[in-house]
Amino acid sequence: METKNIMIVGVGGQGSLLASKLLGRLLLTKGYDIKVSEVHGMSQRGGSVVTYVRFGDKVYSPIIDKGEADFIVSFELLESSRYTEYLKKGAKVITNTQQVNPMPVIVGAAEYPENLVEKMKNAGIDVDALDALSLAEEAGNSKAVNLVLLGRLSKYFDFTDEEWMTAIEQSVPPKFLELNKKAFELGRNA
């Protein structure tokens, strides 16, 4: 199988590490070779963060380069727009429509671009946009955005419900399990 590439992007502190951990667990049970690359340290402090998840028969590079991503899963709208050059032909962007202003916007040095979903679509990008924050709140906690987005991503893969649920059980603390499962379902069915 040719290597599949998923980029998970967002703002430092939004919980993208859990999403990549969960994906990694699931893919491992399917027998794939996997590489997951994270960024630690200074970039975590509210900056733009990227996690690369790659799987296939044999994966060499730990990173995803421009023109290679099959999916971008984005926790924040501006961040999905930042990385469109990484998409390969026919790739999909799954993005939360939540907007988090970066510091240049907060201090008035730049403006948060309007209608980004439309602009991405106009550029020929296949965008699946959803209000993951509201769905996470509906599930019981705004921090469950990661599971909502994974639920949405699951629509595009052939893995069974049971396989996803096992991976969720292995990745979240027991007391938040039901909440996370609900968030996953809401994302999957939204």
Binding site: Q44, G67, L87, P102, P113, K119
Partner: peptide
């Protein structure tokens, strides 16, 4: 040769790390 996905013509503001 390497290919590249589409870039938006929009100016995407940077998101530098900040003090929490």
């Amino acid at each position: 040769e390497v290919s590249c996905g589409p870039a938006l013509s929009e100016n995407i503001p940077n998101r530098p790390p900040v003090m929490c």
